[in-house]
Structures are given as C-alpha cells and as structure tokens.
C-alpha cells in the first residue's frame, strides 16, 4: 500500500478547540461520584451513541475523557457521571450549575446497538462501569420492544458506593428488567447479596445463542467476567467490552491510548471480544 496522503483540497477541521457547554444540574451520587447535566451551545443535541465519551476541558487544568451516561433517546441535554480521581475531576467537583465547561466529541465507536437489537441484552457493570452502561440500559428501556430480555448484573465495592440508587430501585421493581446486584463488602444494613461480580453470573439462565453481552468495569474485572461468561458457554462472538485507556486527543493522533495496533479512542472504547482476545495488552 502506498502512503500517498497529501493531496490538494484536503479538508481539515479544528480538532482541539472545545465547544463551550453549560452545566445545568449537579447531582451528588456518592461520596466520590457526581452526575453532571450538560447543555451544548444553543441546546443542540450531542448526537452520541451509548458507550461513547467526550473530552471535558477546563481551561488552565486540562482535558479528561469522560463517559456519557445518558441515553441518546433522552433528548436535549446529556449527562456525565464523574468520579473524583484526578486533577480535572477534582476541580470539576467544585463546579455548580451555570458554569461553562469545554466539550469535544462525542468520540469513540460506542456500542453498535444493531448487534443487540432483537436479542437478549446482558449488561455486566463493575463499579463506575455502570456510568457508560446506564446509557445503553436506558436506550434499551426507551425502545423496549426492539430488544429481548434486559439482564443487568451490577457489582460494587460496597453498598455505600452504589450509583444511581433511585434508578437501581426502579429497575428492581420494573418487570421488564432482570436486575441483579452484589457488593464486595456490605455495610450492616445491606440486605442484598455479598460477593464479587462474577458470583452473579453462574445463576443466570441464558438463552446463550440469543444473548449479547456488554461488559464495563475496572481492568481487573474483565478477565474474570470473560472467563466466567465463557464457562457458561456464551460465545466470544456475543461479548463486547468497553475498555479504559489514557485517551488524550480523542481523534486518533496523540498515540496514548494505543493497545497493540488499535486506538481505543477510534476503534474503541467498545470492543468485540474476538477482535481483542488476541491483543495481549487489552485484557
């Protein structure tokens, strides 16, 4: 293949300058996590897919990749659930409604919803992995007829760290949702199940060929969840993973998020398991 790229009339765009969006609501989810509602300039749609992310920009502080937590089926504003773990999120924690923040994106491939349509949808979310998965869950709920069963397996370190507790309670009651939750360590009031997330999986009755699964969570979780799903007989072809890497530019230029030959910010963050099972650094 010849690399003849430079040609006259090549169109380029401004890739790095963010749009200034407005925080319209701030809701504390836990000690560490906060949900921000954000309005794009002129109230325009962000135009994202479940599983995509944006680069949030605070001038003087920097940029960070943040998962979108709302479903594109909910129009108008979008939501981001953010854990305070770094320089930018720490500063953002002090922001109130009315503050402007820079947004670039949406970036990444997102979840290919068409692969889930007509199938049973299994969502496995560990900890903050629920944030992007909530976008997919609400997408399925808003278009409930287009999908089969909706099975949610959610694991958290403790019950005090559970996110979106009002929605969890609603899923628990909702007959259209099969919701399972476990915590690594429960507080004395915890009445639910205790144990790591993989303990939720063996008991699931799945129509294997007709079930498509999306997994999102901390790096250590993937390996064990994938092994357990395989153990149940779910084919790799039916498994998607949403991975985290240091995505700096979001547009496939800066090289930071590369896993073997793949740019997470372009080819990911959602990967089809057969595509990355061989990438040694992915899991």
């Amino acid at each position: 293949m010849e690399l003849q790229i430079l040609k006259p009339g090549l169109e380029t765009r401004e890739l790095y300058l963010p749009e200034m969006a407005e925080i319209t609501a701030v809701r504390r989810l836990t000690e560490m996590e906060t949900l921000y509602t954000v309005k794009m300039p002129g109230g325009r749609e962000l135009g994202h897919q479940p599983g995509q992310f944006v680069e949030v920009s605070l001038f003087g502080v920097g940029e960070a990749p943040i998962s979108i937590s709302s479903s594109p089926t909910r129009h108008g504003e979008f939501e981001m659930g953010i854990r305070r773990v770094g320089m930018l999120t720490e500063v953002l924690a002090g922001y109130q409604p009315g503050r402007k923040i820079g947004i670039r994106g949406p970036f990444g491939n997102g979840i290919d919803v068409s692969k889930f349509r007509g199938k049973d949808v299994l969502i496995v979310a560990g900890g903050i992995g629920l944030v992007p998965m909530r976008s997919m869950i609400n997408y399925v709920l808003d278009r409930r007829d287009e999908f089969g069963r909706l099975i949610i397996c959610y694991g958290s370190r403790s019950d005090t760290e559970l996110l979106f507790t009002d929605e969890l309670a609603a899923w628990e009651k909702d007959p259209r949702v099969e919701y399972h939750v476990t915590v690594d360590r429960g507080s004395p009031d915890w009445r639910g199940r205790t144990g790591v997330i993989t303990t939720l999986l063996p008991g699931l009755q799945l129509d294997l060929p007709n079930t498509v699964c999306c997994v999102c969570g901390p790096p250590v979780m993937y390996r064990f969840v994938v092994l357990t799903l395989r153990g149940k007989g779910l084919p790799d072809d039916n498994i998607y993973l949403s991975l985290e890497r240091r995505m700096k530019c979001g547009v496939g230029k800066c090289g930071h998020c590369q896993i073997n030959g793949s740019y997470v910010c372009q080819d990911g963050p959602v990967y089809h398991l057969p595509d990355i099972a061989k990438l040694r650094e992915a899991l």
Binding site: I5, L6, L10, T12, R13, K253
Partner: peptide
Amino acid sequence: RLDHNFLTGKPER
C-alpha cells in the same frame, strides 16, 4: 508516515 497519521481519519489543520 507522519502524513498518514495526521492526514488520514480526521485530518489535522
């Protein structure tokens, strides 16, 4: 090769 990186996909101004 630099051209390939910066000018394919989303070309950088």
